[in-house]
């Protein structure tokens, strides 16, 4: 079990307090103070589960803007492409599928990057990350793919997550 670190507590506090303000959306002193107290208590208990690496990576402007670029430009385009493809298959009577589970290598070192990539893959219709393993220091994902067109390994990895991984590597490497 990891020890509670001060930057992690601060970052967790900021996230909790931002959510409190967004959900209540009232700016009287009473509500803000109550929110701050509750957020601080939650942050003290939950910070060690919530943050495992550098807490303030986004203060580096280059990383912040490449992260913003990833979630505003790269990911939505992939999402819409995959959605249109999936909708075509569904309206076509669900016959045009060839499901299978492929194992693909991942070239991201950071835990945040791996989690973001796995969630992006799952969020794209047509691919679901089912298991994450590590062999000899190289992480692998087992991905359920609705239409297996490439053999397992690097080729399938490029077809599923080539663009996403390139965008994420700029954020967390």
């Amino acid at each position: 079990m990891q020890k509670t670190k001060f930057p992690a507590v601060v970052a967790t506090f900021i996230v909790c307090f931002a959510f409190w303000v967004l959900l209540t959306w009232s700016f009287t002193a009473q509500e803000l103070i109550a929110g701050a107290v509750v957020s601080l208590a939650v942050a003290l208990f939950a910070a060690r589960f919530f943050i495992h690496e550098k807490a303030f990576w986004f203060l580096n402007p280059l990383k912040f803007f490449s992260g913003l670029f990833y979630w505003v430009c790269i990911f939505p385009v992939e999402l819409i492409k995959a959605n249109v493809d999936m909708a075509k298959r569904c309206f076509g009577g669900c016959k045009n599928i060839n499901p299978g589970i492929v194992k693909v290598p991942v070239d991201l070192k950071s835990e945040y990057g791996q989690a973001a990539l796995a969630n992006s893959i799952t969020l794209t219709p047509g691919t679901i990350t089912m298991e994450v393993t590590e062999q000899d220091g190289q992480p692998y994902y087992y991905i359920h793919w609705i239409d297996v067109t490439k053999p397992s390994g690097k080729e399938a990895g490029d077809a599923i997550k080539g663009t996403l991984e390139k965008g994420l590597r700029r954020v967390w490497e």
């Binding site: 299978g100 194992k103 397992s152």
Partner: peptide, 10 residues
Amino acid sequence: MEVDDLGRDL
């Protein structure tokens, strides 16, 4: 399934 690496490995 045509390919099932998860079943094969784990």
